[in-house]
Design a protein around this nucleic acid. Structure first.
Length: 586
RNA sequence: GCCGCCGUAGCUCAGCCGGGUAGAGCACCGGCCUUGUAAGCCGGGGGUCGCGGGUUCGAAUCCCGCCGGCGGCUCCA
């Protein structure tokens, strides 16, 4: 039974009201003021999405807009619209470049023909504020580099200010900042970019996530294995990675033999399958591994923990008969939904995609049809809303991806279920069927968290660093009010420690205020304060997040409720709620 | 990899535009205070200004290259 707990109210609402119509109007007016004021920039149309507009221009002189010009354009756009701009829809362009950019909608703006993606209509009301966030290049073709202005626009300056406020708040949730502040992980020039160094606290989070996934693997029947990080290149030739993926692989020649660091775990698991003759009675066979893989992403593509070069997948491979595919997908999907519910991830912050057969593919249409239907039926039978990405599947099979949102609204793929017809073929995998014939099994690749790094980053941002207690590196800090009660504080510490709670004590020669402040800054879920009163009655004062305190809590009661909260992997501070109900607030 | 911006103490940043021997807050160390709930007071140590080259009498500051970071693009099998 799957319990889906969507809609958890643990995070502030990060949605901001950007109107596509307003963005569309701003896009046209921006192009208009460029056409009137910057003779070396040729407008090539704009597109609009839920986070702003993107306008492309061709630089006729090779110059690029600088900060000053950008600020001037913002002003000119608002000024022009205030003075009156007439926008008339003219039709659709058949220009090849505009078609390539999907900017085929043509509008006459004060007599100048300008372009916009056809899916959106400009607002009739004048814009009040434009902010160009960035000037970058857009390369729709390898040898074509366009100037791209990325920005937001609003009806009024007040709306812009509200957006800026939201944006500044969102930036504070950035996992890269929190990772440093909370002492979770770091990156170093000397180590190499995209290579994470986990500190003790970050490693605790990793371990908790892995522990959770071990439980999931057990339920799904995946047996954990362990495979090397480096294999001879011949293996990568067999798997096809050597030709398809070589530019992202780390290769090294040792003693006249070339080796490659693994970018994927599947070949290792396949070798296990191949160690003996398999019968239909053995299937499904499922292997899981917390496998660390290395993919040499290009430098500009790296991004905190969300895009790294070395990362650990909660990887798993199932070897199945065609008939077993649907059931397996359903089971995995259920577990994905269960795992997401543990983190209280809101439905708005998830997108599920089904990617279908691309133009270039291997296998038969029949195989693709069956596998795609299996994925689709699994989604529908579980009632999971999804969108279809036509032709976006891998060349080797269709897939389901689950994407989550980061603090500033960018989407990242985490969970994935991929059906694979290619690897069984390339490695010549077989099983003996009932009729004694040799059959080829289907392989499903699946990862539920996806990459531990990426998932951790999303969770840090989702919770603004204030992770649920079970995930928190430090769960309790014990603070004695004076030295006199240090002995009792020691006892409280020892009891918690012996019960397996991650507890620290703060005996610094500092004021109580400062220690409480420090604990809040470190996002420690429970601050336990003990003074003479507590020592006498064998109680504790418990301070939770949100400045909530419950006093006179019997020590044993606190320990038990805390242990429950951790065991249940509660999203909220459940123990605090229970204590509040039982003991009452101060 | 492409375009733009950025790199000053452990952290956050000022100084750079108009070159003249490096500063603040936090953190750290020491002392005072002996604490009842989100930064107590005083003092101290700490930086070849990312690296390399150039211009200059003189470079954190100007120029070039490299490394690293950020925002986009491309990519993410």
């Amino acid at each position: 039974m799957v319990v889906v707990r969507f809609g958890g109210d643990v995070t502030p609402n990060t949605e901001v009201g950007l109107s596509p119509e307003v963005l569309a109007r701003a896009s046209l007016i921006l192009q208009y003021v460029v056409s009137k004021n910057v003779e070396w920039l040729e407008p090539l149309g704009c597109s609009v999405d839920e986070y702003g507009f993107k306008c492309d221009f061709k630089s006729l002189s090779g110059e690029w807009p600088d900060e000053r010009l950008v600020r001037r354009l913002e002003e000119l756009a608002v000024k022009a619209d205030a003075e009156g701009v007439e926008i008339v829809f003219e039709g659709f362009s058949t220009n090849e470049l505009l078609k390539l950019l999907d900017h085929t909608g043509v509008y006459r703006v004060n007599g100048v023909s300008l372009y916009l993606e056809p899916e959106v209509k400009p607002s009739g009301d004048p814009i009040g504020a434009v902010l160009i966030k960035n000037v970058s290049s857009h390369n729709p073709l390898p040898d074509l580099s366009l100037v791209r202005l990325v920005g937001v626009a609003f009806r009024s300056r007040e709306e812009l200010n509200a957006w800026i406020e939201w944006y500044n708040e969102a930036v504070k949730r950035d996992h890269r900042l929190l990772g440093q502040k909370l002492d979770l992980f770091s990156f170093h020039d000397e180590a190499g970019s995209g290579l994470v160094i986990y500190h003790p606290k970050g490693q605790v989070i990793r371990e908790e996530l892995i522990k959770l996934m071990r439980e999931v693997n057990k339920r799904l029947g995946y047996e954990e294995v362990y495979t090397p990080h480096v294999y001879k290149s011949i293996l990568w030739r067999i798997s096809g990675h050597y030709t398809l993926y070589r530019d992202k692989m780390v290769l090294a020649e040792v003693e006249g033999e070339e080796y490659g660091i693994k970018p994927m775990n599947c070949p290792g698991h396949i070798l296990i399958y191949k160690t003996r003759m398999r019968s239909y009675k053995d299937l499904p066979i499922k292997f899981a591994e917390f496998g660390t893989v290395y993919r040499w992403e290009k430098r500009g593509e790296l991004y905190g923990l969300l895009r790294v070069r070395g990362f650990t997948q909660d990887d798993g491979h199932a070897f199945l008969t065609e008939e077993q595919v649907k059931e397996e997908i359903k089971a995995i999907l259920s577990e994905i939904m269960y795992v997401l519910s543990i983190f209280g991830i809101k439905a708005n912050d998830i997108r599920v995609y089904l990617s279908t057969r691309p133009e270039k593919y291997i296998g038969t249409e029949e195989m693709w049809g069956k596998a795609t239907e299996a994925l689709r039926n699994a989604l529908e039978e579980l009632g999971i809303p999804y969108s279809v990405k036509e032709g976006e599947g891998a060349f080797y099979g269709p897939k389901i991806d689950v994407h989550f949102k980061d603090s500033i609204g960018r989407w990242w793929q985490c969970s994935t279920i991929q059906v694979d017809f290619a690897l069984p073929e390339r490695f010549g995998l077989e099983y003996i069927d009932k009729d004694n014939s040799r059959k080829r099994p289907v392989v499903i690749h699946r990862a539920i968290l996806g990459s531990i790094e990426r998932f951790m980053a999303i969770m840090i941002e989702e919770f603004e660093g204030k992770l649920p207690t079970w995930l928190s590196p430090v769960q309790v800090v014990v603070i004695p009010i004076t030295k006199e009660v240090q002995q009792y504080a020691d006892e409280v510490y020892r009891v918690l420690d012996e019960e397996g709670v991650r507890v620290i004590k703060d005996y610094e020669d500092e004021t109580l205020q400062k220690k409480v402040r420090k604990a809040y800054d470190q996002a420690i879920p429970y601050i336990v304060i003990v003074g003479r009163k507590e020592a006498e009655n064998r109680t504790v004062s418990v301070r939770g997040r949100g400045n909530i305190q419950v006093s006179n809590v019997p020590l044993e009661l606190f320990v038990n409720e805390l242990k429950n909260e951790i065991r249940e992997r509660a999203v909220t501070q459940k123990a605090l709620e229970v204590l509040k109900a039982k003991v009452g607030t101060q």
